[in-house]
Amino acid sequence: MSQLESRLIDRTVPDIPLQLSDGRRLHLSDLWREHPLLVTFFYRRCTGICTPFLEGVRDATRRSGGLGSDYRVLALSFDDADSAEDVRAQAAALGLLGSPDWDFAVTDREALGRITGALDFWYRYDPARRQIEHNAMIVGIDGGRVVRALVAGGGEGGRMRELVWELRGSFIPIYAVPGQTPLSCFTFDAATGETRLDWGMLLLTLPALAALIAALGVFYLGGRLRRVRPEIDTAKAWITSHH
């Protein structure tokens, strides 16, 4: 699976025609022109993973931030029997109807063949169950090329977050290490995508502070000794008074 994902990186995505849930007709490139695009596949009649999967994407993108401002999501039906009304119903079921950040779309059979072929998205109609067997896929597209793809079955959750941030043009430099102490240098804030200085960095100022306090303290005491008994050799006075 991971080999599939790595194969997809940097692939060119065909610019197929789309019909959106509100009936508008346009091309895929119209969607990725302004912002990078997160593309995922579903079909309306799916009784399996499609709806929970889309819910997962919806929640994950909400958590990661930047949706709408840095990138948008396209949920594309891969069932050529789906109509604009069907995908509209799907959007409504997810509470995403009218969302400015999400598009739900259908396309024709030929275009579907092209895009699923280009992305190695696998699906097969099972007449016995009247369902389509398929895998789950999320593809990040920037400028018509695949930035990164996730295919269900071969990864871990942090990678979804990583994909989103990468699509937004930033990078997560930290992987969690189990049992790490709270004293790290900086933390990555998943909500803002920024690295912030942490307590560890604050701890780094401690030596300088200690030196400052030590210097001020020593010179303060030395000065007092000089003022109290200016007539004697102060260096010796300190030693005799302390030993």
Binding site: A215, V218, G222, T234, A235, A237, W238
Partner: peptide, 13 residues
């Protein structure tokens, strides 16, 4: 710290 002390009893900071 002791060397600093030795300086401090002769000179101000």
């Amino acid at each position: 710290l002791d060397l600093l002390r030795a300086i401090a009893v002769k000179y101000s900071i």
